[in-house]
Design a protein around this nucleic acid. Sequence first.
DNA 1: AAGACGAAAGTGGTTGA
DNA 2: TCAACAACTTTCGTCTT
Length: 307
Amino acid sequence: MDEEDIVKCTECNGRELERDDARGEIICANCGLVLDDRIVDPGAEWRVFSIEQGEQRGRVGAPMTEMLHDKGLSTDIDWQNRDYSGKSIGNGRTRSQFYRMRKWQKRSRVSNSRERNLSMALAEMDRIASRLELPKSVRERSARIYRHCIKDNLIRGRSIEGVTAACLYLSCRLCGVPRTLDEIAQSARTGRKEIGRTTRLIKRKLKIRADIPTPDMYTARFCSQLGLGAAVSSKADEIIALCHEWEIDCGRGPVGMCAASIYIAGVVLDNRRTQREIAEIAGVTEVTIRNRYKEIVQRLNIDSTNF
DNA sequence: AAGACGAAAGTGGTTGA
DNA sequence: TCAACAACTTTCGTCTT
């Protein structure tokens, strides 16, 4: 888990956290509680003085990933009875030895219920993320949150699907590429209600602070889904910025604000979509778009001449 | 006929006593 | 825990292009 995920010390609520790369720990500066261990040190532990030396010293395998239940680090024993050079491994005795090794390898890897739970969840997570075309960073972060859920016993009594979807929903928001609850729910195997409920629980228990998304986080995606170009998109962002300046957006849902801004931008630039079309993509009703639209036009005095 | 408009009643989540 | 509340939805009749 990143430092951004932990905002407060669970012991004393202190907000000053220190990162210790040498030990791989995150520590509360106030009371000294270790909040997270095994963080990844991004640096190398050796120094290089030339490119060739760097290449020599670099030991690079597949990257560690949160998306595999063993983080991609455990050993595989191939099913073929061949050694490293491809020669077949001979007699019956070594063969049966390999058979036993494979068996125990499998058993030790997905051994307990937690591991099984995790690998199921990660598979489900991957399925939803693929359908929503979510970037890898979002998946990694989501997997990280899920691991913490397991650690804090948040899964018991809840469905894997629900917690998985909630982790993704949260992760999207944390990564600045928010999806609406409806979008997640459409690809998940649970309802919007459960995802929302579980999300709130995770936020509370893991003390994750996720700011409410701003309207401009949706513009690019909605516009491209509507087949609108960069011109409309950036005009919509302009309107959103103005609305924020004039506090027209306070207390309003960000999706509705975005939808209305896109509608106005379309009208202004003579590249319009109907309220119906935008409402469909954004997941709000035409009425909401109309209400926002009315307020914005009124307060900003927008008409065809001044925009 | 499609799109836009707006009134009115209903819904689900948040807040504060 | 419950009621008040604001935002948003649903529904539907009317107006505009």
